[in-house]
């Protein structure tokens, strides 16, 4: 299976530890992914808020480039990019904005098939052949550490577009955590929004939402939170150390990418990733 890789802009800047740990896990299980050549930004919230052309066109150019390189599946670790890629595929499959699709096809010189299997990192890891390898390679079992699996919005909703997990009661990340020897906690904020793209424009709103999520994880005795989204990680991690965060005297909760925790369990050198966090991870690297 030829697998393409779309890191997206965050994984090349604020989320380099996500990028590095994803690629390290892929390598550790002896698999290979290849970055799409000359990929562009998916447009994120700004794109679909500004114009319908950008909403479809920016993700679609990447999907077309991936098809041109002959990839059958595409690993997209960023939840926001993943959601927009899935949305673009959904729109094309339902015959929307055909003029725009035709324009892009003409520009890139191809006939678009809309066939690539777009995977988020959890889906990729849970592929039967991958999870079996991971289970065999575990060198540092997580010893029952209590973890809150945080899904946020864009991996889950809307279900008819992304089709990943139960949108109200997701459990796939918990299954993965159990395989690593961790104890996932039961908590109710796992699919609540962190405020995502409003991080710069309406920070007070993000502070309120993040506080609700972190408090809920702490109340359910979580020792750390894991996520598969760079926006969630940046908001949950960064907001806790900022001066405007409530409950300054409470214990801060580290927020790891799921790939970092897998890499740690596989015994990969995690110090470099952990050093990027604003709330230092309590695991001994």
């Amino acid at each position: 299976m030829k697998t393409g890789y779309y890191p997206g802009c965050s994984l090349h800047s604020t989320a380099t530890e996500y990028n590095e740990s994803v690629l390290a896990v892929v390598k550790a299980i002896n698999d290979e992914v290849k970055e799409i050549e000359d990929w562009n930004c998916c447009g994120a919230t700004a794109g679909h808020s500004t114009s319908a052309e950008l909403a479809l066109g920016l993700p679609l150019r990447n999907l077309m480039l991936a098809e041109k390189e002959g990839f059958e599946e595409l690993l997209v670790p960023c939840a926001a990019c993943y959601n927009l890629f899935k949305t673009a595929q959904f729109e094309v499959a339902h015959g929307q904005k055909q003029d725009l699709v035709a324009d892009l096809e003409h520009q890139l010189g191809l006939t678009y098939q809309n066939k690539i299997n777009v995977l988020n990192f959890i889906e990729y890891v849970l592929k039967p052949e991958n999870i079996e390898k991971i289970k065999k390679l575990i060198k540092r079992p997580l010893g029952g550490i209590k973890v809150a699996a945080y899904y946020g919005c864009l991996l889950l909703r809307p279900h008819n577009v992304v089709g990943f997990d139960n949108p109200e009661r997701p459990t796939k990340m918990e299954k993965l955590l159990e395989a690593l020897g961790a104890s996932p906690v039961r908590w109710s904020a796992k699919n609540e929004c962190c405020g995502g793209s409003q991080a710069l424009s309406k920070p007070e709103l993000v502070v309120r939402l993040v506080n609700n999520i972190v408090t809920n994880a702490r109340d359910n005795e979580a020792e750390l939170i894991v996520t598969a989204c760079p926006l969630c990680q940046a908001n949950l991690d960064g907001r806790q150390i900022n001066w405007d965060f409530p409950d300054q005297n409470k214990q801060l909760l580290p927020v790891l990418y799921i790939s970092e925790l897998i890499g740690y369990a596989l015994g990969l050198p995690a110090e470099k990733w952990f050093a990027k966090h604003l709330v230092p991870p309590s695991l001994k690297a």
């Binding site: 965050s10 000359d38 990929w39 447009g43 994120a44 794109g47 808020s49 710069l200």
Partner: peptide, 20 residues
């Protein structure tokens, strides 16, 4: 919020990728 969208997309327009 509108300003943020514009600032974000300006960098995508200039470089093809977001430049934080």
């Amino acid at each position: 919020v509108a300003d943020f969208y514009e600032s974000f997309l300006d960098t995508v327009y200039d470089y093809g990728r977001a430049y934080e």
